[in-house]
Design a protein around this nucleic acid. Structure first.
Ligand SMILES: [Mn+2]
Ligand SMILES: [Mn+2]
Ligand SMILES: [Mn+2]
Ligand SMILES: [Mn+2]
Lengths: 223, 223
DNA sequence: AACAAAATTTAGACAAATCTAAAAAAAGGT
DNA sequence: ACCTTTTTTTAGATTTGTCTAAATTTTGTT
């Protein structure tokens, strides 16, 4: 598999999460930041190799093999991100770009040794699960901060958007994985929320709240 | 620069070591395991980018820029090889293939952090020098075992061939970097040699002796 | 059902990297 | 100086991955 093929397979896998529907050419083109015509060309090649099911005009769906490949690439991506943070002191907003390159390195031994070096981590620096050798990964019950009841409490366990801009914003407000967050209030008009994190009260927009995952620690919380 | 371009630049650099002459199309084709016609195409592109000097039928020579690039790739290659051996318990015959992939990862920060993690090593697992950030590397006075006087002594400091076949042969006979080797005898007929390593006497062919570097520890040695 | 809009595919082009076969240039020997 | 061999370049083809523009199919709306 070429780098490009692997990226497509990974893109399709991500779009497939949360829904068993076929992925449309347009949606995939948006995901891959390319043109629909390029997508059509590529999916024909991938279908030829039995990595996905494709019927003209009907979108695509990964085959069993395709899914296995996707999980391998995702495993590598997340292990490398973990390595960069744990062993090379990268910050969580710097790792994605480099991991996009490292995920294509082919060496089963390398991946498994890396896994061992890191002590078989279950989650990456963004809280995303790391598939094991067999593609199996842990799930965690987590809820978007925007969907939390008011008042309530939770621990930050992941981000939905892991763009540097968002992650740096979180850093500036001392929001990190493992941090306890108190949900104080929600504004009816714009759904912005007031939260408490590290002893500081903070007003955050609906967009921010919609990209932060919490593990609820109590159904409700009284001040 | 594409992976292929980087590989060509690296190939030219290696052929240029030990000689200021221009590299011929045929020699480069052999090095890159490709056809002369493919080489002609590629060197035109590289000349266009000012990575090398090229005059039709006259061979090529790296520019200053080309040499800098080559040293960067070589630095990465050797640092990754060191990482694989030091941190992931790879053996010295397993690292080259993976390093051929890893050397193309683009991230200055990654390379420098890796360097720090490994404590700024001067030499890779095969005894080859690792250029620093600025392309500067140490040299060591070393001599091919085949060129050592008889009798004499030295410490194994490098290999000329680092193919798995050769390295595994050395492993089987407990020859490793840092090992002390006594040169006992040379056979006039086939230039095979008798050496002592780790208390064991060993008969080795001229071909083997021509691929092992020693740092001489004494001009002569009396039994 | 018919038409317009949107989504998708096809056709044709291009750059990168390779190949084979043929042409051209350089080198070597008498 | 001429001829032969070797080296190098050119010409033309192929694969991968992309693009634009045009054609086709599907979807949504009267
Ligand atoms: Mn990532
Ligand atoms: Mn991640
Ligand atoms: Mn190597
Ligand atoms: Mn090496």
């Amino acid at each position: 598999m070429t780098h490009s093929e692997e990226n497509y397979i990974k893109g399709i896998y991500h779009l497939s999460q949360g829904g068993k529907n076929a992925i449309s050419t347009t949606a995939l083109a948006a995901q891959m930041e390319t043109k629909p015509s390029s997508v059509t060309d590529m999916i024909k090649r991938l279908a030829e190799k039995d990595l996905l099911h494709y019927r003209k005009y009907q979108g695509v769906r990964l085959t069993e093999t395709g899914t296995r490949h996707a999980l391998k690439v995702i495993r590598k991506h997340r292990l490398w991100e973990s390595f960069l943070v744990e062993k090379l002191d990268f910050s969580w907003d710097e790792v994605h770009e480099v991991a996009e390159q490292l995920e294509h390195i082919e060496s089963e031994k390398l991946v498994d040794r890396l896994d061992a070096l890191l002590n078989y981590p279950d989650f990456d620096p963004h809280g995303d699960p790391i598939p094991d050798k067999n593609g199996v990964f842990k799930t965690r019950d987590k809820k978007l901060l925007s969907a939390m009841p008011v008042p309530s409490m939770g621990v930050c366990v992941g981000v939905r958007d892991s763009s540097p801009a968002f992650l740096k914003f979180l850093d500036r407000h001392h929001i990190a994985l493992g941090r306890e967050i108190r949900v104080l209030d929600r504004e009816a008009f714009d759904h912005s929320m007031r939260i408490e994190v590290g002893g500081q009260t903070l007003q955050i927009s609906h967009q921010i709240a919609g990209n932060l995952y919490l593990k609820p620690t109590a159904d409700s919380w009284k001040p």
